[in-house]
């Protein structure tokens, strides 16, 4: 399920790996493929998204931020915290589109993610909504 703006909402995006890019619909590609096929993506005239894995050099998309509607940060394992810095730096670069977390994170991390600029989350369907709301409102104050 997709959690965004404080509620469960419909996911419009399809995440492609090696599959052919369809004519219609919003799609994301892994970073390298997006860089290779960006002309084709732009030519579609549809919303365009990229996926960043923790070990990619995410600075390669710095000059393309205006052409991106969605940046997905991936959590292959919950303890890989590089993507927290990715998100922080993308926002500092001025990226105003959506940043979405997918993968093996736990709800407890969502509070910290929203503070570094992540604004949507793809989660397993069996997570109670109450847990999500609890974690996002866990701390009423912070030092940073």
């Amino acid at each position: 399920m997709l959690f965004k703006n404080g509620e469960i909402t419909n996911n419009q995006w399809i995440h492609l790996t090696t599959e052919e890019i369809p004519e219609k619909g919003c799609v994301t590609l892994p970073m390298q493929r997006w860089l290779d096929e960006q002309d084709q993506m732009t030519a579609r005239g549809l919303p365009s998204g990229v996926r960043l894995s923790p070990d990619c050099d995410f600075t390669q998309i710095n000059t393309h931020l205006d052409n991106l509607d969605l940046i997905v940060i991936e959590f292959p394992v919950l303890a890989d915290g590089r993507v927290f810095s990715f998100s922080k730096l993308l926002r500092r670069q001025g990226y105003q589109g959506e940043i979405r977390a997918i993968g093996n994170f736990v709800t407890d991390q969502m509070f910290y993610m929203q503070k570094v600029g992540v604004d949507s989350f793809e989660l397993p369907d069996d997570i109670p909504t109450q847990d999500i709301e609890d974690t996002l409102n866990r701390f009423s104050v912070s030092y940073q």
């Binding site: 919950l78 303890a79 890989d80 915290g81 927290f84 810095s85 922080k88 991390q109 509070f111 910290y112 993610m113 503070k115 570094v116 701390f139 912070s142 030092y143 940073q144």
Partner: peptide, 14 residues
């Protein structure tokens, strides 16, 4: 201590 406590970016360091 305060700056580092629950720092959103640095809770999952290498």
């Amino acid at each position: 201590r305060q700056w580092s406590t629950l720092h959103p970016e640095f809770m999952y360091l290498p």
